[in-house]
Write a protein that binds this DNA or RNA. Structure first.
Length: 209
DNA sequence: TGCCAGGCCCTCTTTAGGGCCTT
């Protein structure tokens, strides 16, 4: 595994068959982008065959069909490749507790684990974009006036690569917002992690201090 | 058979309940 590089972040997003790996749900698609020096420099996307049929609700929600998954590589094969992609990088996801559960569950099936740090763009946005109508990814993309035209995927919301790209843009927008408001740039990953835990009322003081 | 998540966060709170987010 590579040594961890503090200036690089992998933003990831899973599409899954349901909400909980503890209830037998599986990952069906992984998408991720690599951020280096404030720019997206690499990406990873793959459907993965979980070996179970997904519900009509999930087919409709994601646009991923059972027929598409039947032709995809097995989860185990994809996760081994993805494990190599994330090695040495900090991770970010929107509602990270959800993606972390599936990442841990799928990696454990191939006898791998991710020992690094995970940050959550949802928790961060509740503190940085406190005036947003809500903190769903789509709403925040609109609120922050982000470019919704993807440069790396042909997908849309609820597809893994597209959502990971939009989450990456949101992450960069939040860093930019702190920079513009406080004149603080090049914030370390760990700072946003800590910021995501402070009470909303204390965000201003936390950043100033 | 029938059930079905879990962490965060607010408040009419802490001996609890319910909404927000993710698929």
């Amino acid at each position: 595994m590579n040594a961890k590089r503090a200036d690089t972040i992998v933003v990831l997003d899973f599409e899954t068959s349901g909400l909980s790996p503890d209830m037998g749900e599986r990952a069906i698609e992984i998408g991720a982008v690599l951020i280096e020096g404030g720019e997206i420099t690499d990406s990873f996307q793959s459907l993965m065959n979980p070996g179970i049929r997904i519900s009509a609700f999930i087919e409709d929600y994601t646009g991923i069909s059972n027929a598409m998954l039947s032709k995809a590589a097995p989860c185990e094969e994809v996760m081994k490749r993805f494990n190599d992609f994330i090695a040495g990088h900090n991770l970010v996801a929107h509602n990270a507790s959800f993606d972390k559960r599936f990442l841990d569950a799928e990696l454990s099936r191939v006898s791998c684990s991710y020992p690094g740090d995970f940050a959550c763009s949802l928790l961060a946005s509740r503190r940085i974009f406190q005036d947003a109508p809500n903190h769903k990814l789509g709403t925040l993309v609109q609120y922050a006036n982000l470019d919704t035209v993807s440069s790396i995927s042909s997908g849309s919301f609820h597809r893994a690569l597209y959502d990971s790209e939009m989450t990456a843009k949101l992450w960069l927008a939040m860093l930019e917002d702190i920079g513009e408001r406080y004149g603080i740039y090049d914030l370390p990953f760990s700072f946003i992690q800590q910021l995501s835990k402070v009470p909303k009322k204390s965000v201003h003081k936390f950043i100033k201090d």
